[in-house]
Design a protein around this nucleic acid. Structure first.
Lengths: 206, 206
DNA sequence: ATATGTGAAATCTTTCACAGCG
DNA sequence: CGCTGTGAAAGATTTCACATAT
């Protein structure tokens, strides 16, 4: 059932299903239906069933889905049944906030190293991690086999950082800086930019 | 040409066009083509032309687009040819980082007020803004006619905050907390959740 | 009685390809 | 000649609706 080229748009919804299912589980709920889950996240029941059916038959007719089982399956599908080591580049305000966010650990993402090129910041501690000079990024990242990175440097520095990350073998980049990064085809980039989201909403305001 | 129910998926690309165009303008470039712009952000030239043509004829055949003119048009379309006052709810680590981010001001978004319900934080200054008690959120937000809000409180508090914002007349919410918010149809919500993005990428890693 | 999984239909989105203008 | 704007075609995605299993 798997790997018959499942569209990325489907993949993009799976983490949202997982998030909602984990939320239900936290409330002690053990079973749900595509209808209930859909109401919770604003997606049609048919779409949820269709999406999940790409990967297997996880439900029981007449009864719905076992949440613990479905959560486990989604962990497997999304490759988050393990810990992912990450590097964080940029130890400014945003970098600090991200480094201190507990949610990463709770979901199996661990910040292993933090880099910056500001001498004032190098050597300082964020939590229990020492900020390292950016000159060591490529070497250390490659030596640790790290595949996931987050960029929180200013826009003017972001492409150079991305180039170094690619050189170091990183394959997934979460980019908080407000520019489009140019990377090879085998490297995945996701963007977080509040301005983009705000403008998408102001469009609909008088 | 406008308002023939243009799909939201088109609206969602407009801010990215604007971002790239402003970037070109910063480099002193005055003219571009759908091809060049598309190469820059990884979108086909045909799609860019089609998207823009929903709103008017902004280009010149044989010559391409005047960047200053197109930027101005996109500002009008996205309603960002003005300043939007915003409220920020949640003065923790992330709230601080966001409150200090210069990018908002540069794009016409201004944080007018910050709220929190932690007595330790109330009364403290973030930049030049004093953190106010959440009990005053509805009243102050409504009195100032503020329509845009950002939520950076823990997931457990986010829905209650959203309810208050709706009560206060807010119509656009940028939600940094990792839950789906339930709001009336006329209220727009956008989500920023790094875990969702990371899981979407780990899917593609071995 | 209830809710899944799924072909088929409907809808939406993107790409093609070219007339037409500068 | 180059590049836009745009109908038409192709392709992708979502919804429908129902056979099927508990």
């Amino acid at each position: 059932m798997v790997d018959k080229m499942i569209p990325d748009i489907v993949v993009g919804r799976l983490p949202r299903y997982l998030q909602a299912l984990e939320h239900l589980l936290n409330e002690g709920i053990q079973t749900t239906s595509s209808q209930e889950l859909g109401d919770l996240i604003g997606i049609s029941a048919a779409q949820i069933r269709k999406d999940l059916s790409q990967y297997g038959e996880f439900g029981k007719q007449g009864r719905g889905y076992s949440i613990p089982f479905l959560v486990e399956q989604l962990h497997n599908i999304l490759n988050v049944n393990r810990t992912w080591e990450m590097v964080l580049v940029g130890a400014g305000n945003l970098g600090h906030a991200i480094a201190n966010y507990q949610g990463f650990m709770e979901h199996g993402f661990h910040i292993a190293m933090i880099f910056d090129n500001d001498p004032e910041r190098i050597g300082t501690l964020i939590g229990d991690i020492e900020v390292q000079p950016e000159s060591m990024l490529v070497d250390l990242t490659r030596r640790h086999g790290i595949k996931v990175a987050m960029i929180t440097v200013p826009a003017s520095a972001a492409q150079a950082v991305a180039d170094e990350l690619v050189l170091a073998g990183v394959l997934a980049i979460l980019n908080y800086s407000p520019i489009t990064l140019i990377v090879p085809d085998n490297v995945n980039v996701q963007y977080i930019d509040p301005i983009i989201h705000l403008q998408r909403m102001t469009y609909y305001l008088d």
